[in-house]
Design a protein around this nucleic acid. Structure first.
Lengths: 366, 366
DNA sequence: GCGCATTACTAATACGCATTAGTGATCCGG
DNA sequence: CCGGATCACTAATGCGTATTAGTAATGCGC
């Protein structure tokens, strides 16, 4: 009887013999005289019912050391384990040359917290092209290599994010992002911080305060306005639309005349929001300077955030600082929680009040 | 005849049914009415001999779109032994709180070049503990997740680096590192740059020039000295030990007396090396200031590198700039070459001459 | 109209690790 | 000293993709 013809054995070509490849669990097992599964069990340190004798454990660990074995993270990942990698995705370059406008401060916290928790970071840059980084509808696909991913900036396409979330891939967005159901995020508590700044002003005796903001519906803007109004309300002051000056181009619209008008109406304090451009504060600051206001004697100014870099040399404005490193750290904490299936952590991070030197007692009415 | 008892089928537990997992190539294949292998071939776009009809290709791509299929990077990596990830390892934090002393400028170039070539970056921080990042003899083990790894700083343990290199793992060290056989590196061409600076001084008529350096045998130091001496030689000036002032603590040893002595001997130009601490330049700069030298009228100063941050406000010293981003980019180029098995790229990166304002014509002898 | 090429696929692996059912031992109580 | 429990370990998968030997189907030359 003829032996059935042996089927050919296709598949991977053997590795080039010249280059000694690093050891596998199989080699370790051979050297230790056990099975590959045993090696995996010893190294996995799983708390499951399986028990390994001290003797065997030692033999395996000796072999591991002798061969210098290190696990292949890709294989671990494929076999449904973790690989201790957290992705960080930003659509703008992760390392913009200009440190000032970059995500650098966030990354400081991200890296620290990730390191503290034993995660390494994978930097995905949205701008990358070709290879794995091809743009297009699947630009986010490669983040799945990591155990979870952090998103910086609001340019991540909602559709793709939704898909990741729907697939149960752990995702955290840095910055509030409510419109996407199920998307975890961490953000600064602008409401409380803005309220606190207004509280500071009212405590100094200011009764008429105006908020200067840009024409923008980002949560970061509306939250500040919300906090501002809460602060007024808390002090028993009227909120009304008159208290908020909203302009798409504050530097053009916030004229000296307008400022003088407010002063004549008894306004003694002005608050600007922080934006990407810093235009609100620049406009307010510039107009006050132009009108010749002696701040904080004639009137007080406050900034809901940090000043733009070009005004960094000026005296520190009264307001609050966004604790960017802490935000980054909080984002990592939340992502780590998602990855390990725990309950989500706290999404809001408190801002720190900055006394500054642009706010003082309300001037006596004249 | 009894059927041989069916062996149980151990292995992975079925995925929790609740969570719909993302589609696999198998699903795509089913929808398109082809085999999984065909799907892989269509997507892989391999230039190998296999040919796929336009008809089939279209069907597959349609199915891919319909299901929203995206490949699993871990699986690709496992099967193809490549994942388009480049590691970046630094023992100090990659994003330190103090931006000044960081690798940040290098990373700018690393990131850009990596993105341009379709690689993503994995950041490994030597400080991370626990999980995959445990320190110990295998602290470098996890870098093998990537296709290759870039090392910043000279703190990477030689033994482990040697092991990586021996295993054929692509490694590039940023900064010259000759003592490790087979270790690829990229570095700035301090020799040429230093020589050029000296050439600039000799062209201005300086005949007696002194180099101030720290007591250190790093290549970065010896290269500068080498270039300095070459520069002298080129101008037909004597090199001798008198031309080099070497001190472990320049700020203490470079006294005003010493400086005056040199001036009396006819020295008209001083050159300091750049170091981590910036001590050589700080000492030279301080002593010159103390002695009351009107620079560059009375004497010329030059710095082989960039000034330390605390002296950044001073007028730019004549010297050269280390093109850190370009160095990072060159490192990535070399790493990419190693990964893809090509010939190694150029290891030396030219520094750019910085005219500055601390060097002028040699004063007339009096 | 019979070999020989070429074309267009598919079957059957392999990649390295994690998991779990199963299997001899050995132990233990009654 | 027998049945069950416990121990220590191994066999046999699976994860999702890439690769290659093989194979029908067709074309081509003479």
């Amino acid at each position: 009887m003829e032996e059935p013809r042996k089927r050919a054995r296709p598949g991977r070509a053997p590795a080039p013999a010249g280059r000694t490849s690093r050891p596998r669990q199989a080699e370790v097992a051979r050297l230790a005289g056990v099975s590959q599964a045993t090696v995996s069990l010893v190294l996995g340190a799983r708390k499951q019912g399986v028990t390994i004798s001290e003797e065997t454990r030692r033999k395996v660990l000796d072999a591991v050391r002798a061969l210098g074995y290190v696990p292949d993270p890709a294989a671990s990942r494929l076999a449904a384990a973790r690989n201790n990698l957290l992705g960080v995705f930003s659509f703008t370059s992760t390392f913009p040359t200009d440190v000032q406008h970059s995500y650098y401060p966030f990354l400081v916290g991200v890296e620290q917290e990730a390191a503290a928790r034993g995660y390494d970071l994978v930097l995905f840059t949205g701008s990358s092209t070709g290879g794995a980084g091809a743009a297009g509808p699947n630009a986010l696909a490669r983040v799945r290599l990591a155990d979870g991913c952090l998103f910086l900036g609001r340019h991540a396409p909602a559709e793709e994010l939704r898909r990741l979330v729907a697939d149960g891939f752990p995702v955290v967005h840095l910055g509030r992002r409510d419109e996407l159901e199920g998307l975890a995020w961490v953000g600064a508590d602008y409401i409380s911080a803005s309220q606190e700044v207004v509280g500071h002003l009212t405590a100094l005796g200011h009764r008429r305060i105006v908020l200067v903001r840009e024409d923008d519906d980002a949560p970061a803007s509306t939250d500040r306005e919300h906090g501002f109004l809460k602060g007024l309300e808390e002090a028993g002051l009227p909120g009304g639309p008159a208290a908020v000056f909203r302009s798409a181009d504050p530097e053009r619209d916030l004229t000296a005349e307008r400022l003088r008008g407010w002063l004549d109406e008894g306004v003694t304090a002005f608050v600007a929001e922080e934006t990407d451009t810093g235009d609100a504060w620049r406009a307010l600051h510039g107009a006050a300077h132009f009108v010749g206001i002696d701040c904080p004697r004639d009137a007080s100014l406050a900034l809901l955030g940090s000043p733009p870099p070009d005004l960094a040399e000026e005296p520190a404005p009264t307001g609050f600082d966004i604790p960017r490193p802490q935000l980054g750290a909080a984002a990592v904490r939340m992502l780590a929680a998602l990855v390990s299936g725990e309950e989500a952590a706290e999404p809001l991070v408190a801002c720190t009040f900055r006394p500054g030197s642009t706010a003082g007692p309300a001037p006596a009415r004249y």
